[in-house]
Design a binder for these strands. Structure first.
Lengths: 349, 349
DNA sequence: TTGTACGCGTTATCAT
DNA sequence: ATGATAACGCGTACAA
């Protein structure tokens, strides 16, 4: 048990009676090193089980090849899929991913950013928390000239790139779909309007109603969170009204699920009496006996594109940060919960 | 735009005409520093927007406060939940989590381990891939005296701690439950037996049959993967037999779901004609109109415990690694898919 | 209480 | 083609 200590290039250099510099060069495929020594070094390095200390290398070079990702929660299908996308795009470039959760708290978010910056990460990907209002912590990132890419949930900060869904369009498409199914009294279960994504979905909904000359009824808009119960409660609210809705467009899948469960409890038939559309294409939406129409956000793709934006940004190692805004198209996956003309089912994947 | 460069303790020391050492001590709350200078340093540090370079600190101290987690895929409810558990337990201790995916390839796994070791992580958490057979890469970790903790999927390596589910017991409980529901012809959709977890579930199944004096029928065991289709196919196979099963115990939820879909397509009633039990408590199992009985593995808890095992290991900075094996009890969540005596529903959460 | 000097493991610059 | 040396930013033993 003598070899507790890690072996360094010095150990190799001593063994071979050459300088550490030569070892370093040999290991890095420096063309000025003779083939002989290169191979010799490589061989003994393997023998001695040498592993480069990327810490020292990073300190020297000023970059760690680590990037940070901050999400509200990691164990949500959407976020973990985005992360997977980022990881798959960045791993081939030698990057590693450090994951942080904000737990939807702006405070945590700021702390995580500080921690990431102090570990000298080369970039930050982030989806802001619901409670984030101030941009102080974002400014810190920019001050350090650390590339920052928002995905899905962004806030507007000059100089920050973002990859988001076209939520306005998504809201429009969802609502339009319901209208085309013959619905006229369309309720909307909205998320917290402080988040751009929910605001945009809401506005898309409004716009579609307008375009199709359907009166907007404020009472038809209920704010929900991403819990099933809030969807149930929303139905309870809506069914107190004189004019019951004939469709539900929910800005989230969990609320949509809750709504469906409550509708079923009330013996209201979906989609015959009420059509339901959710949002996010959570896995469960398609596995249900009565699959829920939902909006796909191609999260893995979103992650990959975010990663590409980041890579572009570091390639051109310009001091000033480039701002790139990518907007992805949403895709409505029409399933039974909103499909009255069953034989027209355009998709059910 | 002059301040491209990060500010160091030297910058602070110059500004205050004191030595960098004093600054360092002040920042680290060294008791030998006067309160005055401590506050002065703290104040100007904040003013100058100083952030400690944890890279340099890590190089100096020999520890990075980063740990690595290797999972087959990150966007699986089970794994992302375990990661969340690890993260929640370790963040308060100042650790950060680096995530890697093996994509179920032993080769990737070995690469990821090398990469992690070279970044000098302080520990590794891992759930081995399906294809992992050799333990060479594991040995490397041990050689470097880096704490290693397996979770869920482990392989037996002396000196490595692990936190796993009692899969044998889980298999037993699931099968016993089906027997108590009156089933006698119980089929088993098994995972790849090369993985301990699936082997144990299988053996638990066998043991339960034996204890209840039910003949084991080899044809009732079908190997599936974690895709829905394989569950459908399994039903197709089973229904070619003369004696059709009256129950399905699936080692995975996706296969169980596929089985249920295929049963429904065949107009076979669940649970009246066939009872179904899945495994993992994937979110969708409880959201279905006909919720699926499933085995909960308390993944977040598993992550937390794995983290605690790691913390213990680093606390006692003993050179020799301690081996600690934690086995968690499974919890069967009985839902409609296997509940013939509906009023006895012990749970449906 | 504070300053000086060194080392962590690498790479880059300047010699040779 | 190879060697000597400085530097990255920090913490600490030793000195004062």
């Amino acid at each position: 048990m003598k070899s507790k200590d890690k072996v360094t290039i010095y150990d190799i250099s001593k063994r071979l009676n050459i300088s550490a510099a030569t070892v370093s060069r040999a290991l890095n495929h420096n063309p000025k090193i003779s083939e002989k020594t290169r191979e010799l070094v490589a061989k003994t390095a393997k023998e001695m089980n040498y592993k480069q200390n990327r810490l020292a290398q990073a300190l020297k070079q000023g970059r760690t090849n680590n990037v940070g990702v901050i999400v509200p929660y990691i164990n949500r299908s959407f976020f973990s899929s985005v992360i997977r996308g980022i990881e798959e795009e960045l791993t081939p470039h030698g990057y590693h991913i450090i994951i942080c959760q904000s737990h939807e708290e702006a405070e945590n978010e700021a702390e995580q950013i500080n921690a990431l910056l102090s570990t000298q990460i080369d970039g930050i990907f982030m989806s802001v928390s619901k409670t984030t209002q101030k941009t102080d912590h974002i400014q810190k990132v920019l001050q350090e000239h650390t590339p920052l890419v928002f995905f899905d949930r962004k806030i507007d900060v000059p100089g920050v790139s973002s990859v988001v869904l076209d939520d306005f369009r998504a809201g429009y498409i969802a609502t339009e779909h319901l209208i085309k199914e013959g619905c006229r009294k369309i309720a909307h279960l909205s998320g917290d309007i402080n988040l751009e994504i929910y605001k945009n979905r809401y506005e898309g909904y409004i716009k579609a109603l307008k375009d199709y000359h359907i009166d907007f009824i404020p009472n038809y808009v209920i704010e929900v969170n991403s819990k099933i119960e809030s969807g149930m409660q929303a139905i309870n609210e809506l069914w107190k009204l004189n004019e019951k809705p004939d469709a539900i467009f929910s800005a989230g899948d969990y609320a949509a699920l809750g709504a469906m469960q409550e509708l079923r409890a009330r013996k209201i038939k979906v989609p015959e009496e009420v059509c339901v559309v959710g949002f996010s294409n959570e896995p469960f939406t398609k596995y249900m006996e009565l699959p829920i129409t939902s909006m796909d956000q191609t999260p893995q793709e979103m992650g990959k594109i975010a990663a590409q934006v980041f890579l572009e940004q570091v390639k051109k190692n310009s001091t000033l940060s480039i701002e790139k805004k990518v907007v992805l198209p949403p895709e409505l996956l029409i399933r039974e919960s909103s499909s009255r003309k069953i034989h027209n089912l355009s998709d059910a994947s």
